[in-house]
Nucleic acid binder design. Structure first.
Lengths: 192, 192
DNA sequence: CCAGGACGTGTCAACATGGACATGTCAGAT
DNA sequence: ATCTGACATGTCCATGTTGACACGTCCTGG
């Protein structure tokens, strides 16, 4: 995997690439895309509100990465990916920068668990473990139902890989929280 | 775990909390903290350069969450957490917002794997799996060495839980990439 | 003695972002 | 007929963030 690209001219602009990626699935309006960011992508990967999305779509149209059809009810504009847009998406997907942008409040909290008093840390880890267990219990049946409906030869449902990613993420964090609690117990038994 | 706090007055400012968390380990200068962000925390959790860190430390001193000792060689200033700072850190660690800030270019790429042609997606997933395998091979011995040096009763080394988190993260992504490849192979056999 | 590199702090301009503000349409229920 | 809520697009401002510019110090090796 190429981990050393920068291309000089094209800067990072991940919001743009998120939009290109969502439009790869099919044409959509700014409103549709705003809704999409309220789902898994906005929860785990990248956040954006409509006030950022609309101007960015405008710039993308200027750059001819999308074309816009303005004929829709209530002023709805539908954006469709162009070949240039698909090419840029592919370039971005395959060329990874040395250091990818990351800004994740949840992971930050995990990194700072050891800045708490042991009792606080324990309580926090227990809360994380419970939260993850609940999310796993909620998500697993969804995936299984999706898989049960899937017939051999059908294409994978859009988002199936992303969904699996989310589920495995929760499982990993769950395992980590339990391991951390054990590790802390071995070092410093709980008070009370 | 409290997943519904906002406190009205205090806004999010995760950079501030990252700094408070790092200072919980012990006093440090802006320079030291800048170095810290070049390690695991900047790679997995939150990025910041010195141009952002210095002004933030200034504001934190104003808010009396840290005290500054200006007597150091080369104009070095050492910042120490105050009780107010520790309280604010604890508040932030234990009260989680409904929707945490997340902006992760790597996860975004994973979410958009299905926007690629199957052959490109396969190549990408293979690259991810290889990269993860290499990182796991690099990290695991580091953890094991740290554990081997650890005597029962010693406190956990600062960062041990974070390190384990990173390792398990790579393992989860590795497993996901392999699962995705299998899943894709079952649906659409590779060309050639 | 002096050069290079690590140490160390800071500002500034350009751009990214989120939340508030602003406006209007369409469909279905009362 | 009117009201409500989802649909739909947009701008503006305060703040967050990055990369470049700018300056000066201490230590070590040649």
């Amino acid at each position: 995997m190429d981990m050393s690209d920068r291309t000089g001219t094209v800067r990072f602009m991940s919001l743009r690439h998120a939009l290109l990626g969502l439009l790869a699935h099919g044409p959509a309006s700014g409103y549709d895309l705003t809704r999409a960011f309220e789902g898994g992508i906005g929860q785990y990967a990248w956040q954006a509100g409509h006030s950022r999305i609309y101007p960015e779509l405008g710039k993308m149209a200027e750059a001819e990465q999308v074309v816009v059809d303005e004929a829709g009810p209530r002023g709805r504009k539908t954006y469709t990916l162009t070949d240039a847009g698909r090419t840029e998406l592919r370039r971005w997907m395959l060329h990874w920068p040395e250091q990818a942008t990351v800004r994740d409040e949840t992971v930050l909290r995990m990194f700072l668990v050891q800045s708490l008093e042991p009792d606080d840390a324990r309580r926090l880890l227990e809360g994380i473990a419970e939260h993850c267990a609940a999310e796993i219990a909620r998500l697993r049946p969804v995936m299984e139902a999706e898989d049960a409906e899937h017939h051999p030869g059908d294409p994978l449902p859009f988002g199936r890989l992303a969904g699996e990613y989310g589920l495995r993420q929760y499982e990993a964090v769950h395992g980590w929280a339990l391991w951390s609690l054990e590790r802390m117990a071995a070092v410093e038994p709980a008070v009370g």
